[in-house]
């Protein structure tokens, strides 16, 4: 599936491995959080990057203790209307200081892209045949923000301001 980063479709260096299938030792792989819990010892000494995929009901505190083991956390949106992932990403960044990649997977739509970026997501797995232009457009159509968020580095006041201003 196409991977969106910075509003563009990019090459995906990660492989998502289904439970029960062998995890490649030589390249970045994403496993389920359930598998991680069951087989964590088996990943000790792994050299290639490891990512974990969490269901929307698995909140940030559940994986907090192991964050240093993951170079990527894929947060699942079972339906685009299920917005728990926005809080999960934000907590990973703000509360636990997670610096790796946070990827939105499952059902998300371009109209949510700005929210994803603002809550700390770095990439989005989009459906096949997605309209790339809609993702790019989603990052530019609104230039005013009313809250602090994670996509800006300059000091912020609490409420209104322009992006990049």
């Amino acid at each position: 599936m196409p991977l969106i980063k910075d509003g563009r479709i990019v090459e995906d260096g990660w492989t998502t491995v289904a439970d029960g299938e062998a995890v490649p030792a030589d390249r970045p792989a994403i496993i389920s959080f359930e598998r991680w819990q069951a087989e964590r010892d088996g990943f000790a000494g792994r050299n290639a990057a490891l990512g974990v995929r969490v269901k929307s009901g698995t909140l940030a505190p559940a994986i907090a203790a192991d964050l240093d083991r993951f170079a990527l956390i894929a947060v699942e949106f079972p339906k685009f209307r299920d917005g728990r992932g926005f809080s999960t990403a934000r907590e990973l960044r703000e509360r636990y200081g997670y610096r790796g990649e946070i990827r939105a997977v499952g059902h998300v739509i371009p109209d949510q892209y700005r929210f994803l970026v603002r809550t700390g997501f770095t990439s989005v797995e989009a459906p096949e045949c997605t309209n790339e232009a809609s993702w790019a457009h989603a990052l530019t159509e609104i230039t005013v923000a009313f809250q602090p968020s994670l996509d800006e580095t300059q000091p912020v006041s609490l409420l209104r301001r322009r992006y990049g201003a």
Binding site: F80, R81, D82, G83, F86, S87, R90, Q112, R114, F115, L116, R118, T119, I142, A145, F146, Q147, S149, L158, L159, R160
Partner: peptide, 16 residues
Amino acid sequence: EILRQWTTLHPEFTYL
């Protein structure tokens, strides 16, 4: 009004 602004397109709380 502060609430109106703060809740407008709140990135975390728009899909409650």
